[in-house]
């Protein structure tokens, strides 16, 4: 419990920054929605005349035009997934490696507690932090949709289903980050790693949607939880989402196993 509390206190500032910045960006994006609903006629002709795959390359979907509320929200949420993923991988890379980086491993590991307990406390602290941000994103999404919808009648079922994917996305990146951090010798700079992982996989996902390519889509968690698909169909794209679920189920126990065996560098 002490470790849990200590880690949470350490993460407090980071939770505050991410918890403010991400909803702020989300709300900021959505407030521009009223500016969008202009040139709809040209768009509709465009939608009617192009094959779906072609439009997909430009991030458009005939069932979810960009000037519709959910169409705009799906683009916004696609962007918001990047910082969410980066935060999660940040914690993943950070949480098990921080003692070694800051040379406090001797202190922690000479305490009369098992590594198992350390591992569980640390994970719980990180998951708690991620959940706080998740809730803030959820609340601000619903709130901002209510604000910008105007006269429109909206059904929030699909939005809620989409927002429920955040936890899975976070855990996937968190797990991947953790496994990498315990398999390599030293995590010299957390940010470099988490940026490379977050943005790298985002680039893979974007190329995947431009090219409608299967392999890119399987590799990148961002395309497992494609906002467009979920907002249209109201369900997860399980054939892809399953990859993320497997990643979570594999990486977290594997990190536990590796952390238990790890030769932790001491002073």
């Amino acid at each position: 419990m002490n470790i849990y509390k200590f880690e949470l206190r350490n993460l407090k500032k980071s939770i505050m920054i991410w918890g403010l910045a991400v909803p702020f960006a989300l709300v900021g994006y959505m407030l521009f929605y009223p500016m969008m609903s202009g040139d709809t006629a040209a768009f509709e002709t465009l939608m009617a005349n192009f094959p779906e795959e072609f439009l997909a390359a430009f991030g458009m979907n005939p069932k979810l035009p960009i000037f519709s509320l959910f169409g705009y929200f799906s683009l916004t949420f696609g962007m918001i997934q990047i910082p969410i993923a980066i935060q999660a991988s940040n914690y993943g890379f950070h949480i098990l490696s921080v003692e070694e980086r800051e040379l406090t491993a001797d202190f922690l590991l000479s305490k009369p507690i098992s590594r198992r307990k350390i591992f569980i406390s640390k994970i719980m602290a990180a998951v708690t932090s991620l959940t706080i941000v998740n809730i803030l994103v959820w609340v601000s999404s619903i709130a901002v949709i209510m604000i910008v919808k105007g006269e429109e009648v909206v059904d929030l079922t699909n939005v809620n289903i989409l927002l429920s994917t955040t936890a899975l996305l976070q855990l996937t990146f968190f797990g991947i980050g953790m496994v990498i951090s315990v398999s390599i010798k030293k995590v010299s700079s957390v940010l470099t790693f988490s940026m490379a992982l977050g943005f790298g996989l985002y680039i893979v996902a974007s190329l995947g949607s431009i090219l409608s390519s299967g392999i890119f889509k399987i590799i990148s968690p961002f395309s497992h939880f494609n906002p467009g698909f979920i907002l249209i169909n109201g369900k997860y794209e399980w054939s892809l989402a399953i990859v993320s679920v497997i990643a979570i189920v594999v990486t977290i126990p594997l990190s536990y196993f590796l952390y238990n065996k790890r030769n932790i560098a001491s002073l």
Binding site: A25, Y29, Y72, M79
Partner: peptide
């Protein structure tokens, strides 16, 4: 990240 997201927003609207 801020400038990148702003860049996307500029493209969108």
């Amino acid at each position: 990240m801020g400038t990148f997201m702003l860049s996307i927003l500029i493209g969108m609207v």
